[in-house]
Computed example of a mutant assay.
Amino acid sequence: MAEIEIGKIVSAIPIPAFFVGANFRVQVPNDAAREIFGPEIEGRHYVTALRQPAILRAIEAAVSEGRRVVGQYTVSGPVSERKFRVTAALLEGGAPQGVLVCLEDVTPVYEAGQMRRDFVANVSHELRTPLTALLGFIDTLQGPAREDAKARDRFLSVMAREAQRMNRLVGDLLSLSRVEFSEKQMPDATVDLGEILSASVATLATDTAGDRLKLDIAGVDPSIDQVRGDTDQLRQVFNNLIENALKYGGETAPVEVTLSAVPQDLYLRTRSLRVDVQDRGPGIASHHIPRLTERFYRVDAHRSRELGGTGLGLAIVKHIVQRHRGRMAITSETGAGSCFSVIIPVA
């Protein structure tokens, strides 16, 4: 096999690849390999060019054992790492003899696995806390507090609260699972966003919150400005955002819900409807904002649990908005409040 033929073969491989010749120097790296290792990799001894022990061991084993060997290689970036599965195979039967090395990017697989592990750990932690409380109170009621009526009533009240918390968590987990399952299927019904918002506000306008809620849907023509959507899911989105604003925006601060038409959204590149849920609370520090829609991420974990939050609400909102081919925007200023916006293209 001539060297020119090896060069053509390596260049045609769609993933990063290069050839280590009989002189143990890197030959004919393709463009994808040059992007990872730099153009200076060509002609260098593979030990000085690659450095990482796992990929070096794979090449050495392929040479010494004459078989295909799998290793790994990690590229560190300013924010995250890229993980590669390395396959090193000895080429025999002609000159030049050497090892063909290919690198497959497995970063998405690795990240998905890490997300699953984090998710299981978070769910376990969220369930363990109320379960531990329940078991402790049950032991106390079966023992020292068996005949103590006051303690029994107090403990049963706490147990009911913890059981409700677990029920909310399980409900949100099921809701998140259903939303993710249907995320790629866009709703086919046409709905009036103003009606859905009005229903959400009416639901949440209790005796204590009614005078704090202000709804403005002026300037939107329901005969024209409708969206393709799932009514129940959109109700869930706005209920969640308005409820969060009422909970975390301060006990007396107003919450303003505004529906407006956007002639041409910059990102969706089409006429859209925008819903802004604005509170006048303490606001959110800027470093928290990019992570607010992550599962179980909380700005103030203790306060969130006290108020009954599961840490899944905004994750559910994000997936529902994505299913409606819309986008979500969050702006906040410390001491001045926060605004959660949902933008959905007009049908």
Rank of each mutant, 00 (worst) to 15 (best):
F18H: 11
G21Y: 15
I36N: 05
P39K: 15
Y46D: 07
P53V: 07
P53F: 02
P53W: 15
I55L: 12
E60A: 08
A62Y: 07
V69G: 06
Q72I: 13
Q72W: 14
L91A: 01
L100V: 09
L103S: 09
P108N: 09
R116C: 00
V120G: 00
T129A: 13
G143S: 13
A145Q: 04
A149H: 05
K150F: 03
L156N: 13
L156P: 13
S157E: 14
S157I: 09
M159Q: 05
E162C: 04
R165E: 14
M166Y: 07
G171Q: 04
L173V: 00
L173H: 00
S175G: 01
E180F: 00
S182E: 14
K184E: 06
K184C: 09
P187D: 05
T190G: 05
V191T: 03
S200P: 10
S200K: 14
T203H: 12
T203Q: 07
A205N: 02
D207K: 14
D207Y: 06
L213C: 06
D216V: 08
I217T: 07
D225G: 11
R228G: 10
V237L: 08
I242T: 07
A245L: 08
Y248L: 08
G249C: 08
G250D: 05
P263Q: 09
Q264T: 12
L266W: 02
Y267W: 09
R271I: 01
R274Q: 12
S286F: 04
S286I: 02
H287I: 01
E294C: 02
R298N: 02
A301K: 08
R303M: 11
E306L: 15
G308L: 07
T310A: 04
V317H: 03
H324R: 12
H324M: 14
G337S: 10
V346Y: 06
A347Q: 14
